[in-house]
């Protein structure tokens, strides 16, 4: 009994339950959902799709968690920053042409440039939020609206195609490896972030700044710098996500790369049981949240729900999950349980 109580009171308990619940729907509706086979030399199956397609969202959710924890607000520009990074990378690779069959510049150069530009976008957001104390939502609204315009400017309003096998590796497969590359990218990002947070005191600093910025400053933490850093990290990660997304379609589609993904990233953070008002955070929770969202999308595809009804089902599931995790509901459940226990005690 004690053990069960301990497990259910863990922060990660509810997010995991939600993910499992979404996956369990498939046991009934789509029996073949969990089947994984090797097809054409690569892993093949719905579960592989979920993990593969969630990669960008996982990467974004990591950045979003840090930003949320430190500043108590969200960066809504990440989707647009993804488009900017994709545009920069493809434009450098194409050497200014609209469509090329051979890359004009080394990929590593283009990717570094793309990620640096994304980092600069993050730094811009960070400057507005940390230095000028502008509300995060308002500060990042600037790049949210302007970002895709900037991406359009970079690509001169056209979709830049890079039809070169070598560019498709990061969004597809490494030759001879059956696991989709985006999964590796997501794992690398998560591991590096975890190591930095665990090995340095950065994680602790972020939490303390998020809980009380002034108090943290008084004990000697440079809270402005820490907030600024989280936005830079978030920008860089958006750049990495943009790289993966543009490699998947071997092109820079400024209008559509990362479209509405910022909202999914925020949702992932919320589904992970994190407080959107800042403070303590759980990276693992956000990652589970990201997988839950993608599992839901893939589930609905597998059930062949028609396109115009898709958002409704998604909304219903999200509402249920969010309500389940809300503090008021948790408290209500706790009092119910206590009452039940008291009634049982009285009957004896």
């Amino acid at each position: 009994m004690e053990k069960i109580k301990k497990i259910t009171s863990m922060q990660l308990f509810l997010p995991i339950v939600c993910l499992v619940a979404v996956l369990l729907i498939n046991v009934i509706t789509t029996p073949g959902f969990f089947k994984i086979s090797i097809n054409n030399g690569v892993l093949y199956g719905y579960i592989v799709d979920v993990v593969n397609r969630a990669s960008e969202l996982v990467i974004l959710a990591v950045g979003m968690t840090l930003v949320t924890a430190a500043s108590g607000g969200q960066d809504i520009s990440v989707g647009a920053v993804m488009a900017v990074a994709g545009a920069v990378i493809c434009q450098i690779l194409s050497g200014g042409e609209v469509s090329v069959n051979q890359i004009a510049n080394p990929i590593i150069l283009a990717v570094i440039a793309g990620v640096i530009v994304a980092g600069i976008c993050g730094a811009f957001n960070g400057f507005l939020v940390a230095k000028l104390n502008i509300q995060p939502m308002v500060a990042t609204l600037i790049l949210y609206t302007a970002g895709r315009g900037i991406a359009q400017l970079i690509t001169k309003g056209q979709i830049t195609y890079i039809r070169d096998e070598s560019y498709q590796v990061i969004g597809g497969f490494i030759k001879g490896c059956p696991v989709p590359t985006p999964i590796f990218v997501a794992i690398i990002v998560v591991v590096i972030t975890m190591v930095i947070l665990k090995k340095t005191a950065l994680g602790l600093y972020i939490e303390s700044v998020g809980i009380n910025g002034d108090a943290s400053r008084l004990v000697g933490l440079n809270s402005t710098m820490i907030k600024f850093l989280t936005y830079v990290i978030c920008g860089v990660l958006a750049g990495v996500a943009g790289w993966v997304a543009s490699s998947r379609i071997y092109s820079a589609d400024a209008n559509n790369i990362g479209l509405n993904l910022e909202m999914d990233a925020i949702l992932a953070v919320a589904l992970g049981g994190n407080n959107l008002g800042g403070g303590k955070f759980s990276l693992a929770g956000s990652i589970i949240g990201a997988f839950t969202i993608q599992a839901l999308t893939t589930t609905l595809y597998a059930m062949n729900v028609s396109g115009d009804q898709l958002p409704v089902y998604k909304a219903i599931v999200v509402v249920v999950i969010v309500v389940l995790q809300s503090p008021v509901f948790k408290k209500f459940m706790a009092t119910q349980k206590a009452r039940k226990a008291a009634a049982q005690g009285g009957g004896q």
């Binding site: 789509t30 799709d49 998947r248 379609i249 597998a302 028609s306 396109g307 898709l310």
Partner: peptide
């Protein structure tokens, strides 16, 4: 056997087709 929106984009078209091929 299936009808689903790909939102006129390459990424969504790929994702939807991927899923349809499995079912």
């Amino acid at each position: 056997v299936g009808q689903q929106t790909g939102e006129f984009t390459q990424a969504k078209g790929q994702e939807v087709m991927e899923s349809m091929l499995k079912s």
